[in-house]
């Protein structure tokens, strides 16, 4: 999740090497546009993933959820696009006898104006026997020879079923931060911590959460990032991903926040933070100026999480407030 800061840093690094000149405006415009393009790309990717994820979820409601299917990258001939193959055993032939006019004319420069034009060809019907004269140009025979047995290969489809990581059961650590606010409460909740020699996942979570509450965003970010990469199957992983989103949100880094909310919602669809994550994803998109996508996302909370009463209420309010 360091990518955005890195990107910004890269941009800054480039900018800082430039002397301050009148053309700075043009150069800064250029860089601003680049930044916008990067953001646009991220939002496109996010909304695509969301759409894929939700439609796949709908399709396989009863089955375990997998990663959204991305498109094929490999070469995949498709026999279904071929006409049926013939049935009779084939016979060999040589190229030489068939390719009568293989000699090519050299390129000739066009001199006469008309040479390039398309001239009309007249067509008239030919019948099976010249003596039988009727109007049909083509005899009404069943279409085509029996192009019979296509050797239909397996459809080369690499759609795979992934394993869903669901946070199961009661969390040992109480996840208390209020999320029903757009911003985090500024009052820190004192959490007494003792660092054991080997930090447990719970410790790491608590330490990161504390950092967030104390507005130590760098610590919170690195802590939650460490948590989700080290303990992706821990029952707090979904919450950690969500809190990572909150950490970005608090810094008004809505693009990174959206990515984290998306991960939380997608990777831990049954986690306790999934409904919040979907709502905050929508709010992030709204902050990124993507009203249509934001509305769609917030509008989907209801159907996705019919039992999340509080979040649904909040989503409805935000939906209205955003003018959806």
């Amino acid at each position: 999740m360091l990518k955005h800061s890195l990107f910004a840093f890269a941009l800054l690094a480039t900018v800082s090497t430039l002397p301050a000149h009148a053309d700075d405006v043009a150069i800064r415009m250029d860089q601003l546009e680049q930044q916008i393009r990067m953001l646009t790309g991220q939002v496109e990717q996010l909304t695509y993933e969301l759409k894929q994820f939700q439609s796949q979820k709908k399709l396989s409601a009863a089955e375990p959820l997998g990663a959204p299917k991305t498109q094929q990258a490999t070469i995949s001939p498709d026999t279904q696009l071929l006409p049926k193959a013939p049935t009779i055993a084939t016979q060999t032939a040589t190229a030489a006898t068939l390719l009568a006019p293989v000699k090519k004319k050299a390129v000739t420069q066009v001199q006469d104006a008309n040479a390039g034009g398309v001239e009309a060809i007249e067509e008239s019907p030919v019948l099976p026997q010249a003596t039988i004269s009727q109007t049909a140009a083509v005899a009404p025979v069943p279409k085509a020879l029996p192009f019979g047995t296509a050797k239909a290969s397996q459809i080369n489809d690499s759609g795979f079923q992934g394993k869903v990581l669901v946070a199961a059961g009661g969390a040992q650590v109480e996840d208390t931060a209020t999320v029903a606010q757009p911003d985090l409460p500024l009052t820190a909740q004192p959490v007494s911590l003792q660092q054991p020699p080997a930090e447990t996942p719970d410790d790491l979570f608590l330490r990161s959460e504390k950092a967030l509450l104390q507005l130590q965003y760098a610590d919170a970010e690195s802590g939650f990032t460490e948590f989700v990469s080290k303990y992706p199957e821990h029952n707090l992983a979904g919450s950690a991903e969500f809190k990572l989103g909150e950490t970005f949100w608090a810094q008004q880094n809505y693009s990174s926040a959206a990515q984290a909310y998306m991960s939380s919602y997608k990777q831990y669809p049954k986690g306790r933070r999934a409904p919040d994550s979907l709502l905050k994803l929508g709010l992030s998109l709204a902050r990124l100026g993507q009203k249509d996508q934001a509305c769609t996302t917030m509008g989907s909370v209801d159907a996705e999480f019919p039992n999340a009463v509080e979040v649904k209420k909040r989503a409805q309010a935000e939906f209205k407030r955003a003018g959806c």
Partner: peptide, 9 residues
């Protein structure tokens, strides 16, 4: 007989 035609140009 499946098809037949004559073209002039």
């Amino acid at each position: 007989f499946l098809a037949g035609s004559s073209f002039t140009a």
